[in-house]
């Protein structure tokens, strides 16, 4: 097997007196879809932000394609081009059309000629099923459509890894399916993905591995079936039981 595309080693994040997470180590293999689950306030989202250097970690190391990105010499703007990020509240650029949202990274960051960038952006929009919305502004799109543009914007940079920070938490239930559908397709195309979500249906069906985090540490990780049916820790069992009861019925609907 290849060496991991993304390696997190003993990562710790502290805000003031609060330990957000401590000593997290995680290897992500090429083409793997990892779903991170766990109670709120466990540091899952902060972990994603640290991986993409939006928030500096206090200690530990992160390697992307074998290169350490947590050294002071690493060019963080360049690193972020290789790590796509999808946000809970979409964060589309409100003054740009869907097409320009996807294009702007290509023209302004990658300095791609306009015609080529446009072609690439249209391809990515088509990938998320929104080529007919290219000229719409974010304010004219539904939440689900906005999030799919958000995914296209990240994909356009051809990242090695995609990070999803609760991509469906801000969506109305009937719009969740369209976003999960796009993510499922990406997983099947072997995009490397790290997904923080409460969508247990997605975790069970799509993930290669589920990581259960609680109180700033990884409690347990493994194949979905192992975690769901043969958890090693009582806490994992409790959490999965609770969350499946809470969200389970809803998920059946959009599968």
């Amino acid at each position: 097997m290849d060496s991991p595309i993304l390696q997190v080693k003993n990562l710790t994040k502290i805000y003031g007196q609060n330990v957000i997470f401590q000593d997290i180590s995680l290897d992500v293999n090429r083409g793997e879809t990892i779903v991170i689950i766990g109670p709120s306030g466990t540091g899952k989202s902060t972990l994603l932000r640290c991986i993409n250097l939006l928030t500096p970690a206090n200690s530990g190391q992160i390697f992307l394609n074998g290169q350490e990105i947590t050294t002071p010499e690493a060019n963080e703007d360049r690193v972020r081009q290789q790590i796509g990020m999808v946000f809970q509240n979409f964060l589309l650029f409100n003054h740009l059309t869907a097409l320009d949202n996807v294009m702007v990274g290509l023209t302004k960051v990658k300095k791609m000629p306009k015609a080529r960038a446009r072609e690439k952006a249209l391809y990515e929009l088509n990938r998320v099923g929104l080529s007919d919305r290219a000229d719409h502004y974010p304010g004219q799109l539904s939440g689900g459509q906005q999030q799919r543009v958000g995914i296209a914007r990240a994909l356009a940079m051809d990242p090695s890894v995609m990070l999803f920070d609760e991509p469906t938490s801000a969506l109305d239930p009937e719009l969740i399916g369209e976003v999960l559908g796009v993510m499922e397709t990406l997983a099947r195309e072997h995009m490397t993905m790290l997904v923080v979500t409460h969508e247990m249906g997605f975790a069970r069906e799509v993930a290669n591995r589920i990581v259960f985090m609680e109180k700033g540490s990884i409690v347990e990780q493994g194949k979905p079936d192992d975690l769901f049916y043969r958890p090693q820790h009582e806490r994992t069992r409790e959490f999965l039981w609770k969350i499946t009861e809470l969200y389970g019925n809803k998920e059946e609907k959009h599968e």
Binding site: L54, D77, M85, F87, L91, F93, V109, K110, R153
Partner: peptide, 9 residues
């Protein structure tokens, strides 16, 4: 943050 996330300075 969204701008920085696609590699903008």
């Amino acid at each position: 943050m969204a701008g920085r996330a696609i590699g903008m300075s």
